[in-house]
């Protein structure tokens, strides 16, 4: 279609996803969880957008809505020029071939009753015509080799692989349809550090070779910094700050981003100038009953009356990148 190089690959506008809250006894709907509450962003071709935030902030729900596993309550998702939220099931299925996902849990995300080769070939079973059946075996072995698995292990079952190898298998499956966009939902979070580093390197190589675009979800900021070109910070269903990687880590202007950064453990704290540690108090607010105005105000040390009344928009502040805080300012070290 109108897939020219300059328009974004993925464009999300004012996306909302809600889940009904049911009473335990009668299963009556008693309210709604706003898991994603008005998120907009663009994903450029070939870039990696990192998505960070605490658990429950809506990262997975956002990803699952983009890929069509959850239904959007409102808003639009435009992929490669096609509007998906209003697309027909057939159109959706076609578009889905171009968007694939790598899951967090390398144990539950692979069908335990299929061999590695069958797992990789399943996509071709579903979309006949992509790869002729006679080529499945060879193509599957190529893919396994591509992600660093021994092709002779194609007949093994998932439980015969280690966690890191399973994650590679999940990556191979996601690549089988030659997608344009790959969503990595905590794809390395469950792995040990040494294995995590191996998988991060693999993802970087694949991006360079295949021109992939990544939406990379993680809660580990060091990992996100390592892989991302741009970073979006989510809090309670909203994006509160969005900027180039350098900007987010050097010049965060939203208090939540600043707190998040200051909480990241540093391997050798003694080798650095002492950092100002911002210790947040309190908990993430319940998404069923978010605070009025700025959702962060219940934990924000800078909150004032205005924060409870007016919801801050995600817009450029201080002449810098977009940040959703009325009182956005650079961290003390920069002032």
């Amino acid at each position: 279609m109108s897939a020219n190089g300059s328009e974004p690959l993925l464009s999300v506008r004012d996306l909302h996803t809600t889940f009904p809250l049911r009473s335990a006894l009668l299963r009556r709907v008693t309210g709604h969880v706003q898991a994603v509450a008005g998120v907009s962003f663009d994903l450029r071709r070939g870039e990696t957008l990192g998505l960070v935030g605490e658990s429950g902030s809506g990262k997975s729900t956002l990803a699952r809505t983009v890929i069509g596993l959850e239904r959007a309550a409102s808003g639009t998702v435009t992929f490669d020029g096609r509007e998906l939220t209003s697309a027909s099931p057939a159109e959706l299925r076609a578009a889905r071939r171009d968007v694939q996902m790598i899951f967090q849990d390398p144990y539950s995300s692979l069908n335990p009753r299929r061999t590695a080769g069958q797992i990789v070939a399943e996509a071709w079973e579903i979309h006949p015509g992509v790869v002729p059946r006679s080529r499945w075996r060879d193509e599957a072995r190529d893919l396994l080799a591509r992600v660093g698995l021994d092709p002779s292990h194609a007949d093994r079952y998932p439980h015969q692989f280690s966690g890191g190898q399973r994650q590679r298998l999940g990556i191979a499956r996601a690549l089988a349809l030659r997608p344009k966009l790959v969503i990595c939902d905590e794809a390395v979070s469950a792995l040990d550090v040494s294995i995590q580093a191996q998988v991060l390197n693999l993802l970087a190589d694949l991006q360079a070779d295949l021109g992939l675009t990544y939406l990379f979800i993680a809660h580990d900021l060091s990992v996100v910094r390592h892989v991302s070109d741009r970073v979006a910070v989510m809090y309670a269903g909203r994006v509160v700050e969005l900027a180039e990687q350098e900007e987010i880590f050097r010049r965060p202007t939203h208090p939540y981003t600043q707190a998040l950064l200051s909480a990241v453990p540093v391997p050798r704290p003694w080798s650095q100038p002492p950092r100002e540690r911002i210790l947040l108090t309190g908990d993430v607010p319940s998404p069923a009953d978010p605070p009025s105005g700025c959702r962060f105000r219940t934990r924000c040390w800078k909150a004032r009356d205005e924060c409870a009344e007016v919801e801050p928009a995600l817009e450029p502040r201080l002449g810098l990148h977009p940040s959703a805080c009325h009182f956005a300012e650079l961290p003390a070290a920069h002032r």
């Binding site: 968007v99 694939q100 899951f103 069908n111 335990p112 399943e122 579903i126 089988a176």
Partner: peptide, 17 residues
């Protein structure tokens, strides 16, 4: 609700598959 079912769904599989 297991992840691998979602994973297969993202490949484009229909209910019967």
């Amino acid at each position: 609700n297991r992840d691998f079912v979602d994973a297969t769904r993202t490949l484009g599989a229909r209910s019967w598959h």
